[in-house]
Computed example of a mutant assay.
Amino acid sequence: MPGFAPPVTDERTALTAYLAHQRRTLRVTAHGLTDDQARMAASASELSIGGLIKHAARCETFWTDLILQQQSGPRRSADESDADEFELAQDETLADALAAHAEAASRTDAVIAGIPDLSQAVPVPRGLPWFPAEVEEWSVRWVLLHLIEETARHGGHADVIRESLDGATLYPLLAAAERWPDPWFRPWNPRN
């Protein structure tokens, strides 16, 4: 796949293509990592690539549940912290996090494909301090834009973490993961 989102013909295609592209660039930051490397917080923050992918999967699930009006309350239990959501625990694997992310993305894509109008209302959850109390609903369009923003933000975090881990950057990782031909980008190789 190219390093950019494909050309788009309409709003729905644009939103879903850009979301797919941001997902792919987040996922490729994990290319070639071991579970232990995926758990490492290699920058000034406590974030790890595995934890970011786990969080991105939970975010997509949360927002898709909202679209379907299946969300009944906070996403986590009272004994779970922010760290739990952003951490790949010792009993979790990178492969598990990637599979959960792919499953959440596939579900989101299927739900969006079945919605005829992106203006469809999505109720704003109540009782969560980060949601505006004065806003009663968003549109599916807004949710897609937010998912693009959220995924891109965490993809940027993952880029910094990956470069801190072993010097790998996005385009050499894409070249390695997708077997791009030389000479444009030297594919990442753990021995380089």
Rank of each mutant, 00 (worst) to 15 (best):
S45K: 11
E46I: 12
E46A: 15
L47A: 06
S48I: 08
G50S: 04
G50W: 04
G51D: 02
L52I: 12
I53E: 00
I53D: 00
K54I: 03
H55N: 05
H55G: 06
H55D: 05
R58D: 04
R58L: 15
C59M: 13
C59V: 15
E60Q: 14
E60D: 09
F62Q: 13
F62C: 08
W63V: 07
W63Q: 09
W63N: 06
T64P: 04
T64W: 03
I67Y: 01
L68I: 02
Q70W: 03
Q71I: 07
S72V: 15
G73K: 06
G73F: 08
P74N: 06
P74D: 02
R75Y: 08
R76C: 04
R76H: 04
S77R: 07
S77P: 00
A78C: 02
A78W: 00
D79A: 14
D79L: 10
E80G: 06
S81Q: 08
D82W: 13
A83I: 10
D84C: 04
E85T: 14
E87F: 05
Q90D: 11
Q90H: 07
Q90L: 13
D91Q: 12
D91M: 04
D91Y: 09
D91I: 04
T93K: 09
L94H: 05
L94K: 08
A95F: 02
A95Q: 07
D96K: 09
D96Q: 14
D96R: 13
A97C: 10
A97F: 09
A97P: 02
